[in-house]
Amino acid sequence: MAYSEKLLDHFKNPRNVGTLDKGDKNVGTGLVGAPECGDVMRLQIEVNDEDGTIKDAKFKTFGCGSAIASSSLATEWLKGKSINEALSIDNMEIVEELALPPVKIHCSVLAEDAIKAAIKDYQEKNGLEVSPETENSHH
């Protein structure tokens, strides 16, 4: 099974690896997956106070190459988006962009879940109404 160039690039040169301050109220953190399942994704967003757009996104992922590339790609896509735009990111877009094989689709699902979990965390922290999409988990 050969991986796509894009996937390999995101895996070897992952974008936006790192950690944002969890305590910052503008930061939302999503931690999904479980070590015993072989996948843990932590995705964080930092939202701009003034216009409500995502000004920064960071991730760290324990998992296979597809999981790492999916989360790297997700952070790239998140930057500059509004919360609503971010909520509309669908896992199948990640599948297409990285040409994930069928056995790796769950990695893209995990990335979508991580985005939603991060948004939910941000909304809860700031006393905002939690978007119903974030409850729409795949599990």
Partner: peptide, 19 residues
């Protein structure tokens, strides 16, 4: 790249987290 390695280095008990 690993969030659990980071937690481990920070002394977080990974088994205590509810995944």
């Amino acid at each position: 790249l690993s969030p659990i390695w980071e937690m481990y280095k920070e002394g977080v008990d990974i088994d205590a987290i509810e995944w």
